[in-house]
Design a protein around this nucleic acid. Structure first.
Lengths: 164, 164
DNA sequence: TGACGGCCCATAAAAACCCATGATAGTCCA
DNA sequence: TGGACTATCATGGGTTTTTATGGGCCGTCA
């Protein structure tokens, strides 16, 4: 499987620990580093997370960009300076740094949202609002999943719908 | 995982000592020289630091440059001539030379910023300002992380944009 | 001698580790 | 099919270890 799916809401205890959903941990289980890399989302009041390996992949792709560009500078300081490596404790929990919690307004509970290769961590209410606005946008712009799938399978040239 | 991640702010005591973050020390732990190589940044009022081994790597790439170029001269004198080897004391601290502190305006506190293969040492306020200007630059030039990531993963040959 | 780097030790706070519990889900067998 | 047994999970709390930070002592070298 190896992709992050579904949404889970877990409690943050008084020490700032949160259980990473077992399903997510299973996705990460083959890796050498038992934990996740987390950074502040550039778009939302939420946190982005991925495996250390995915981060290295990102790191490798970085080297293929023009290193003299300002973008390189930007991405390196933003991503690597702004991310943290959080390892699991014996029970599969991570300890969210205080400023990360503040950034995402996370206090009592944290929502883990699977996003395929990565996942996000939201304050549950903020997530609900965000999903509402997403749905509204989808309606007003007439976006539907089945249409997208139909288009995708045309592009794939096999005429058959392909399962995601 | 052998890359420098995250940002840590530590105090500089009256002797000029600063703890190098434990996570950074772990990255360096496999090396023969227990310490770091530090030099003044060519771009900012900050210090650049890396392992002695990475320094050798830099040295190798320098040799591939045209020795008649201005860059060669600049790098050779500034980086290699101006760098210092600082070893850890028993508690994982380094002693920053006075002129290095002056150069980066470091007095009470020092911010260690992970930059993958290297890290930087900033005066915390200066770092905050620098990050602000980075953000502004990103906005005015319409650089978005997701675009960059998409480009990076294209270069990686997987053809799909990566959602973050 | 006196500034300074190199050591050692002390301490409070934070992080990592270990164990216990209740709840849930999953399995097995009658 | 239903019920008991088991495994897994999220959660909480306590304990140990690590970390950052401060200070002191002692050579060295100008």
């Amino acid at each position: 499987m190896a992709v992050f799916l579904s949404t889970y809401v877990n409690k943050v205890d008084r020490k700032g620990r949160v259980s990473v959903p077992a399903e997510f941990r299973k996705v990460l289980s083959g890796q050498s580093f038992q934990g996740v890399v987390v950074f502040k989302s550039l778009q939302y009041a939420a946190l982005d997370a991925c495996s250390a390996e995915h981060m290295e992949l990102l790191s490798d792709s970085l080297e293929k960009l023009d290193p003299s560009s300002e973008q390189y500078e930007l991405i390196e300081s933003t991503i690597f300076g702004g991310s943290v490596q959080l390892s699991f404790d014996g029970e599969g929990r991570i300890l969210l740094p205080g400023d990360f919690c503040d950034f995402a307004n996370i206090a009592e509970e944290a929502a883990f949202v699977g996003r395929r290769k990565t996942f996000q961590i939201w304050e549950p209410k903020a997530l609900a609002e965000h999903e509402n606005s997403m749905r509204t946008m989808a309606r007003t712009q007439d976006i539907s999943l089945s249409k997208m799938l139909a288009r995708a399978s045309q592009l794939n040239g096999d005429g058959r719908g392909r399962a995601l």
